[in-house]
Design a binder for these strands. Structure first.
Length: 258
DNA sequence: TGGCATGTTGGCGA
DNA sequence: CTCGCCAACATGCC
């Protein structure tokens, strides 16, 4: 449910609050989609000090001093709470006990969130990584698939979700229905700038509006992928089209390349 | 109130 | 083989 900018903020805040603390107990529900048993998780990380929490694509990573790592993917509905939050007891998938007021709960009423012990390295670059440049984007766009679907494809570039794909493509002035392999070089250059700008601005806005946030999502500042808005800043009507079961928001300000 | 929303996977058909 | 589309997951939110 949260997208890249939300997860980026969660990771920084969790790292800030939990780094250096010892994981006293870990509970992993049998309902979790995972690659290891609860006892394997316990053996790997209980009693270990947390080194850091960071984001990779749409996953959070908890790295412990012994280098064992837990990957947490929220899928659609996963959510972190601190123990004591009133919602934290329903649909619990996992609990991390770091100490008195530093206990973390993962909930998901669909039980689709995934926890991975020592996730395998992934070659696909993250949307905010330095590897993303015009040449790289040009490479992944060599397909007649729509540019939006290409940006959403986690096997090509990691971290962009449905809402921010719309936001980025609007910012770049490119129709989401354009064919990837018809995008001219100048538009690819703009796309590169828009990816960094839109995602970067969102991280800043979330951190400013909700210091310490570790769950939920903030979206009210989105300009186009936002049901509350009818027009773009320049006054163009925002259109909505369902595609692949998800809404795509766009305006006529975006050029169609076909 | 009930329509809307977020990611991924796998199967289907064009 | 490549794409787009659909269902499934099952509830919170306004």
């Amino acid at each position: 449910m949260p997208e890249l900018p939300d997860l980026e903020a969660f990771a920084a805040n969790l790292s800030h609050q939990l780094k250096g603390k010892k994981l006293q107990q870990l509970h992993v529900s049998k309902n979790v989609t995972t690659n290891a048993s609860e006892s394997e998780f316990k053996k790997a990380v209980e009693g270990q000090v947390l080194s850091k929490v960071y984001r990779e694509g749409k996953e959070l990573r908890m790295v412990f001093k012994n280098n064992n790592t837990m990957g947490i993917h929220f899928m659609l509905r996963g959510k972190f709470f601190w123990f004591g939050d009133k919602n934290a007891h329903k649909y619990t998938l996992a609990e991390w006990v770091f100490g008195a007021d530093k206990n973390l709960t993962l909930t998901d009423y669909q039980a689709n969130a995934r926890i991975t012990l020592n996730p395998a390295p992934v070659q696909v670059p993250d949307a905010l990584s330095k590897e993303i440049n015009e040449k790289f984007l040009q490479g992944i766009l060599q397909s007649k698939a729509s540019i939006k679907n290409l940006l959403l494809d986690q096997h090509k570039i990691r971290g962009i979700g449905n809402a921010y794909a719309d936001e980025i493509l609007w910012d770049a002035g490119i129709s989401p229905f354009s064919a990837g392999n018809k995008i001219p070089a100048a538009a690819v250059k703009t796309l590169h700038k828009s990816i960094k700008k839109v995602l970067g601005n969102a991280v800043t806005k979330i951190n400013t509006a909700a210091p310490g946030i570790i769950g939920g999502e903030l979206r009210d500042f989105l300009l186009i992928h936002n049901a509350a808005r009818k027009e773009s800043p320049a006054g163009a009507i925002i259109k909505k089209k369902m595609a692949g079961g998800r809404p795509t928001y766009f305006t006529d300000e975006q050029e169609m390349y076909k």
